Amino acid sequence: MNEVFLGTTLSAMSTGLGALVILFIGGSITHRWRDTLLAFTAGIMMAASTMGLIPEALSIGGFVPLAIGVFLGVFTLTILEKNIPHIDLEHTKKGIEFDEKAMLIIAAITLHNIPEGLSVGVSYASNNGGDTGNLIAFAIGLQNAPEGFLVALFLVNQKISRFKAFIVSTLTGAIEIVSGLLGYYLTNYIAFLVPYGLAFAAGAMLFIIYKELIPESHGDGHERTSTYSFIIGLLFMVLLIDLF
């Protein structure tokens, strides 16, 4: 129990770690660097889902629970996307008043963090327990760090103080602690849910990778740099899986 709480907390608080950077830099960063960060985290998540979550779900429950869980993850993210207005952090122009726009982006990021927390929680409930859980917590944490930075950067560009932007961005990740513990308890005490939960997490991550991270990392003419960064991120995570 201590391990799952620590893992979900560290993963969630990585959002704040990324946002912390905003306290020490100006209110802007080049598109190339943002695209590189997004692509790198996409590679991290791709390796974690295809080499961690999917094989684990397949070995525990077989193909049918895997397929059902993946589609449930994709469907859940699709519903969230359709009902929560998505604001592209990379390419939007100013023009919407702060109160409306800021609340939309905060709500969207917070709700999109729920499946990520579930991913960590159900991973700790698998047969490999700590190994898979730590792997997914690390992957989600790496994804959360640049996300936290981009949210804080957005708020600073909306004339919010850097400290307030850091606090708000950090709080958007806190929901992952609650959803992570919920995912752990559900799958830990209802054993047959474990392969579905792992596959759900994989489906949610794959949706985020293909629908959000890759398109956003290719939106400013840095496709080649982003592609290299994606591959490096994937290989980095494969190395960690192999070592640990």
Rank of each mutant, 00 (worst) to 15 (best):
G148H: 03
R34C: 08
V120K: 01
A108V: 02
G197T: 00
G18Y: 10
I29H: 03
F230I: 01
E3M: 08
S179Y: 15
T30D: 06
G16Y: 14
I177M: 05
G148D: 05
L20S: 00
L234D: 14
S217H: 08
L206R: 15
A107H: 08
N128K: 12
I79A: 15
M13Q: 10
G221W: 03
F149G: 00
F236Y: 04
I87M: 07
A57G: 04
L198F: 07
G95H: 12
G130C: 02
T41R: 12
N188M: 03
G52N: 03
A107Q: 10
A39M: 05
P195Y: 11
L104C: 07
A12K: 14
I60R: 09
S229R: 00
L153N: 05
D242E: 02
I22P: 02
E116V: 10
V194T: 11
K82A: 11
V156M: 00
H31Y: 05
I25R: 01
E81K: 07
L37T: 03
L58P: 13
G61L: 06
P146N: 07
M46I: 07
N128E: 14
R34S: 10
E116G: 02
T41H: 04
S49G: 05
F5P: 03
A12N: 14
S14L: 08
E3F: 11
A107L: 12
S126G: 12
Y185K: 00
D88L: 01
K82V: 13
G173F: 14
A137F: 01
E56I: 15
R224M: 05
S49T: 03
K211Q: 04
G233M: 01
I84Y: 14
G133L: 06
V156P: 02
F230L: 00
L181R: 09
K164P: 02
D242N: 12
A202Q: 11
S226Y: 14
V21Y: 00
G233N: 02
G219N: 09
I54W: 02
I109A: 06
E100H: 12
M13Y: 14
G61S: 14
S28M: 01
L66Y: 13
K164D: 01
G26Q: 03
N128M: 10
S119W: 12
P146I: 07
G203L: 07
G27L: 03
N157G: 06
R34N: 08
I22W: 00
E90M: 01
M46E: 01
V74N: 11
A42S: 07
T41C: 14
A107D: 06
I136K: 08
G52C: 04
L150R: 09
N157R: 02
T9R: 00
F40Y: 08
G95W: 12
A39K: 07
T78D: 12
I175D: 11
E56N: 15
S11R: 03
T50N: 11
L239V: 06
T9C: 11
D35R: 11
T187H: 07
G219T: 03
E176Q: 12
G130V: 10
I114T: 12
T76Q: 09
I44M: 02
